[in-house]
C-alpha cells in the first residue's frame, strides 16, 4: 500500500516536470520569426529545401515551417492566409491566384521539365515520340495503364493540360487511375503496376534507383516545369508575415542561392535537378 503513495508523488512530480519542461521547450519563437512556406512535394522529396532552408535560417534568423503539399493545396493555404510564402509550379493556377489578388510579387525561381515514364516494354510504343500530346494519345489508344497524381498538384494540372490538348477526357476511363498521393509515392505505385506516368524530372532523378521505369518521352516545350515564388498578399491577410515572406522570396532569387540550385544534385545524380531562372522573363522560357 505504501508503495503506491510514493507512486502517486512520483507521477505528480513527473507531470510537473513535463509541464514546466514542455512549456519552456514548446514556447514558440516571437511571432515575426515564424515563416510558413507552403510548397510542392517535389521541392521536399528531392531534398532541395533540406539544403537551402538551413542557409536561409542562418542568414536571416527566421524559422521556416515548410508544409510540403501539392501546389493546389499550397495555393489554397495562401488564399486563406494560412501561409506566408509559396514556392509552387502550377503557372496557370498561379496566374489566377495573382489576378484574384491573393499574392504579390510573383518571381521566377527555377525550372526543370516533366518527363513521361513507363515500363521498359512500352506497350503503347511512345518511346522517342517528341510530342507529349502524341504520346498521351498513343497511351490512351493502347489502353495502357496510366497513373495520375489526381491531387491538384502542379504535376497533375500539367497532366490535365496535356490530356486536354490531346482532346481526350481520361476521367473514368479504364486505363486511367488516380493515386491522390505525392510524386514519390505515385512513382512507386506506377513502378509496381508497370504503368505510365508524368513526373517532374527532379523527383524522378532522386528516386530512379528503386523504380525501373525508364524515361520514354521528353523534351516537348509543353512539358516545361516552372517554379515561382509568391508572397501572400498581406493586404488581404494582415496576419501574414510579409517581411519574412519577402526575405524568403529575395533569398530564392539571390545570386548565391541560384548558383547553389544550379549545382544541386549534380554530384549525386550526375545531372542537375533544377535550372536556375531568376531574373528571366516568362517569355524566355517559352511561356
Amino acid at each position: 500500500m505504501k508503495r503506491y503513495r510514493h507512486l502517486g508523488w512520483i507521477v505528480a512530480l513527473a507531470v510537473a516536470l513535463m509541464v514546466v519542461f514542455g512549456a519552456t521547450s514548446y514556447a514558440a519563437a516571437p511571432e515575426q520569426k515564424n515563416l510558413i512556406l507552403a510548397t510542392t512535394t517535389s521541392t521536399q522529396d528531392t531534398g532541395l529545401l533540406d539544403e537551402l532552408l538551413p542557409i536561409f535560417e542562418k542568414q536571416t534568423g527566421y524559422f521556416v515551417k515548410t508544409i510540403a503539399v501539392g501546389s493546389g493545396q499550397a495555393m489554397t493555404m495562401g488564399q486563406k492566409g494560412e501561409a506566408d510564402v509559396l514556392l509552387v509550379h502550377s503557372p496557370d493556377a498561379e496566374k489566377k491566384f495573382m489576378t484574384e489578388g491573393f499574392g504579390v510579387n510573383r518571381m521566377l525561381v527555377m525550372h526543370n521539365d516533366f518527363i513521361i515514364i513507363g515500363p521498359a516494354s512500352d506497350p503503347a510504343g511512345i518511346k522517342g515520340v517528341k510530342s507529349a500530346v502524341e504520346a498521351f494519345k498513343k497511351i490512351a489508344a493502347a489502353g495502357a495503364l496510366f497513373m495520375s497524381r489526381g491531387d491538384n498538384s502542379g504535376t497533375h494540372s500539367k497532366e490535365k493540360g496535356v490530356w486536354k490538348a490531346a482532346g481526350i477526357n481520361p476521367e473514368g476511363q479504364k486505363f486511367y487511375q488516380q493515386t491522390g498521393l505525392g510524386m514519390g509515392q505515385t512513382l512507386a505505385v506506377a513502378a509496381e503496376k508497370k504503368a505510365y506516368t508524368l513526373a517532374d524530372r527532379g523527383t524522378y532523378l532522386a528516386l530512379q534507383k528503386n523504380l525501373g521505369l525508364p524515361i520514354l518521352a521528353q523534351g516537348d516545350a509543353i512539358l516545361l516545369n516552372i517554379y515561382h515564388v509568391i508572397q501572400v498578399n498581406p493586404a488581404k491577410w494582415p496576419k501574414v508575415n510579409a517581411v519574412g515572406a519577402k526575405a524568403f522570396a529575395d533569398f530564392m532569387v539571390a545570386k548565391k542561392t541560384q548558383a547553389f540550385i544550379k549545382t544541386f544534385g549534380v554530384k549525386k545524380y550526375g545531372s542537375p535537378l533544377f535550372f536556375p531562372d531568376a531574373g528571366k522573363k516568362d517569355a524566355e522560357l517559352g511561356l
Binding site: 512535394t41 521536399q44 522529396d45 531534398g47 533540406d50 532552408l53 524559422f63 515551417k65 515548410t66 508544409i67 510540403a68 498521393l181 505525392g182 514519390g184 509515392q185 512513382l187 512507386a188 532522386a206 528516386l207 534507383k209 528503386n210 523504380l211
Partner: peptide, 24 residues
C-alpha cells in the same frame, strides 16, 4: 505538426515522408 524538420518531425511522420521519397 506539418512534419517540419528538426521541430515537429516525429517517427511516424518521418516514416511517411521517407516512404514518399522512395527511401523504403
Amino acid at each position: 505538426g506539418g512534419n517540419i524538420k528538426g521541430y515537429s518531425r516525429v517517427l511516424t511522420t518521418a516514416t511517411v515522408m521517407e516512404t514518399g521519397k522512395g527511401n523504403f
